[in-house]
Amino acid sequence: LAATNLDIGIQYWLGAKVEKPGQLVVPAKEVSEFVSYLGAEKLTLAAEGKLKLKITSRSGETVFNGMDPAEFPQIPAVNQEKTVSLSTAELSQAVNQVGFAAASDDSRPVLTAIYWQFTSTGYQMVATDGYRLSQKTVAVKGVKLTDKEEAVFLVPARSLIELVRLAAEEKEFRFGLTDDQNQVVFLLPSLQLNSRLIEGEFPDYQKIIPQQAKVKVMVDREAFYRAVKISSVFARESANIVKLKLEKEKIIISANAPSVGENKTEVEAKIEGQDLTIAFNYRFLLDFLNVIPEKEG
């Protein structure tokens, strides 16, 4: 089975008794919905002419109108000798901790991508939507996709998030580039996922990240998360803004909405540096807190 929207494509192999090989192109949405309503039973698939698919089950027969297979886009292939292997668990954690910061608006395609950089010591992922930025570094040795010491790819965040979902039960996966280096191909035992790479210049994120911190805060993740959630009840009616006031040994999280009321919650914390008051979009805080382990803070 193969499907593509030209940005991302998937091929899936499943067991079947094939009496006569052939190809058909059928409407994915309607066939998917139809099959989901059937029980756990064997199906017989047969081509009726060149443009129709007949599905026979215990309860009846169904025919779907199709298209000429020659019109279906060609799924790119990759030379498996030029692929490398990565841990699914490590990639899954990296994508989850970075992907949330990628833009969902396609007006600036480069911001919908995850910046994926490979070096001799591993890889790092970076994503930003222009308002927030998340970076994750993973130590891996012996990963080399090109002749260069360093390689950078802009992979759509949606593609990597979909890969993580599909590869959840696999320990490892392989991936490589197509010969024209315009697409990346991920290989699993019974599945291949390919994604186009995004062209453009990713923001110079290293200039955005401060080299030194004037204030450092250590706080219990769960307590801080709960306080932000409480304040969000009021922040939703006030442009999603919550205020954080850093004082000696505590953080005061507050939100004020004229039509609802106001709230202040104190959380114990270890603070190094001067007192500070700063405001954030509470959704940005929750997105980050949702993807870090509970013991971190």
Rank of each mutant, 00 (worst) to 15 (best):
T4Y: 03
L6C: 11
I8T: 08
Y12R: 12
K17N: 12
V18P: 08
P21Y: 05
Q23T: 14
L24T: 11
V25S: 00
P27E: 03
E30A: 12
V31W: 02
L45R: 04
L45Q: 02
A47H: 08
A47C: 14
A47M: 14
G49W: 06
I55G: 01
T56H: 06
S57M: 10
G66I: 09
P69Q: 02
A70C: 09
A70W: 10
A70I: 09
E71F: 14
P73T: 05
P73Y: 02
Q74G: 12
Q74H: 13
N79Y: 09
E81Q: 13
K82H: 14
S85F: 11
S92D: 10
A94P: 05
V95C: 01
A102P: 02
D105I: 01
P109Y: 01
L111V: 00
T112I: 01
A113S: 12
I114K: 00
Y115F: 13
Y115V: 00
S120M: 11
G122K: 04
V126Q: 00
D129L: 00
Y131W: 06
R132N: 00
Q135W: 13
K136C: 06
K136Y: 08
A139Q: 15
T146P: 04
K148W: 11
V155Y: 01
R158N: 08
R158A: 13
L163T: 07
L163D: 03
A168R: 13
E170R: 09
F175W: 09
D179A: 15
N182S: 13
V185T: 03
V185N: 03
L188D: 06
P189K: 05
P189E: 06
L191C: 10
L191F: 11
S195F: 03
R196M: 07
I198Y: 00
E199Q: 14
P203C: 01
D204I: 08
Q206I: 09
Q206D: 06
Q206L: 08
I208A: 00
P210F: 04
Q212N: 12
K216H: 08
Y225W: 11
S231F: 07
S232H: 05
S232F: 03
V242L: 08
K243A: 11
L246F: 13
A257Y: 04
V260Y: 07
G261E: 05
E262A: 11
N263F: 10
V267L: 01
Q274V: 11
T277H: 04
T277G: 05
A279G: 09
F280Q: 02
Y282E: 05
R283C: 00
L286N: 02
I292V: 07
E294L: 13
E294G: 14
K295D: 15
